[in-house]
Design a protein around this nucleic acid. Sequence first.
DNA 1: TGCAAAGTGAAGCCATGGCTATATGGTTTC
DNA 2: GAAACCATATAGCCATGGCTTCACTTTGCA
Lengths: 141, 141
Amino acid sequence: MTEDSAQTDQAERFNQARTAQSMALLEDYTEMIDDLISEHGEARVTDIARQMGVTHPTAAKAVARLKREGLAVSRPYRGVFLTDEGAAMAERVRVRHRIVVDVLLALGVPADAAELDAEGLEHHVSETTLAAFEDFLRRQG
Amino acid sequence: MTEDSAQTDQAERFNQARTAQSMALLEDYTEMIDDLISEHGEARVTDIARQMGVTHPTAAKAVARLKREGLAVSRPYRGVFLTDEGAAMAERVRVRHRIVVDVLLALGVPADAAELDAEGLEHHVSETTLAAFEDFLRRQG
DNA sequence: TGCAAAGTGAAGCCATGGCTATATGGTTTC
DNA sequence: GAAACCATATAGCCATGGCTTCACTTTGCA
Ligand SMILES: [Mn+2]
Ligand SMILES: [Mn+2]
Ligand SMILES: [Mn+2]
Ligand SMILES: [Mn+2]
């Protein structure tokens, strides 16, 4: 590999990490909304905000972005609901989160650290890596 | 655990992930500058920019932040240098990056995916998790 | 030595994701 | 039904991290 293509590759890695990061907020919110609806029958902005550890205007802005990206719907003073696409994302994210935690635990990471780190790590686990994680967990069984 | 403290814990996880993310840029740039100095004897803003996959004003702004945080020094139209603190960060980051890649490889992740994902994952690996990773690699060894 | 190219800096734009403060719509309770 | 309380919306602030454009040094080469 030439020095030039090495530079290109490195830049691509940083770009991929930036892209993954820009999806992180959408992923966490869709999962959170789905959780709230499952547990309480509805997802109110105030509950979303408390759960995410942000103020309610911040949560409202995030919901606006979810709607703009076709992941959620809501009407003024009513709860937030996920579109099919949003629900699909929530499901994917939930599964991936669990797999990441399970892999960390299998590697001997303490449970509390595993949960803490997984919340950030999950967004940078590609499909390829996720598949490898699943294989690993099956072998470990 | 009460429902209330579960909410608090969850919010803390998101906060930790946000904090980790805010360190990511500093970590990647210090490592990059250290690399460039090792390989070419100096770290110029243009080279940093190309390597990071951003425009030069973006890299210059990042360098300004590094200086503000005491990690780097530079004078107008001269290269960028790391402080002792910056160099220490670069070294930590480099070691951690390699460990993350090694763990992924040991789990059966293809090499290219391992390198791609590691660039984002590394910033969310806590000291505790890193220690567990090192133990795992030693056992695997 | 001088000029062109390359590198650097400065200004100003945008989107994102935090925040506070304030206004307004809904709900509950008396 | 009105008051009080709660939830939601809106406006506006800040920092970050992208970008383009333009101006100014520095450097290298004819
Ligand atoms: Mn997360
Ligand atoms: Mn998660
Ligand atoms: Mn990185
Ligand atoms: Mn790295």
